[in-house]
Amino acid sequence: MEWRDDGFVLAARRHGESALIVEVLTREHGRHAGLVRGGQSPRRRALLQPGNEVAVTWRARLAEHLGTVECELTRAHAARFLDDPGRLAALASAAALLAIALPEREPHGDIHHSFAALVEALDSAPRWPPRYVAWERDLLAALGFGLDLSRCAVTGATDDLAYVSPRTGRAVSREAGRPYHDKLLVLPDFLYREAAADGAAIAAGLALTGYFLHHHLLLPQGRGLPEARERLAERMRRRNEAGNIPAV
């Protein structure tokens, strides 16, 4: 068996003394793992960094085998973010989420496409924080846990939406949600309409998507949010408190 595809490196873990087991998000074969012989050599390790875009060749005798993977670097995205703690945290968070949330070997061309767009957005400051939160919202939708942010679940109103029900994932208007505001999740404007996003809105957006990622996607698998995602939320929260996130 052999196939070739384009993909992004999501994770790589040591296997034995010289090999790596790499996980890639491919366009046509979804999240796929494979053994990279000699993957721990300095040259190979450099290209097998999370977020790097690679041309993948997978080979195995039978389809259900782990198989071996050969990766040729197409674009070294990770290296461009190493000096920027915020972007690096976002890239690591997105890759870690995909590595644990996506079912293996299930094609998700839409998620491959949205991850590629996220990496481009990370590279083209300064609007990356709202794009990251929107990417998590789209990831939920692609995996069947989409939030309904089109109208208020109570009144049907389409404007002044301010909350999301943690039970149903549906939006609630400010007026209808006021009596229950301590039980509802805050919906930042930029997630349902064109609006600027300041630090508070980014923090609220990460709390919203984080809640649904955790409770609907990861908890049923007995998992929590990955450490990288927690660190990103913590970094954005601290930047917001320090007033370091301008409205974009």
Partner: peptide
């Protein structure tokens, strides 16, 4: 190390 994990750790320690 100049890897995603190495530099993530470096930024965390710097903070």
């Amino acid at each position: 190390n100049a890897t995603v994990e190495g530099q993530t750790t470096a930024h965390y320690i710097a903070d």
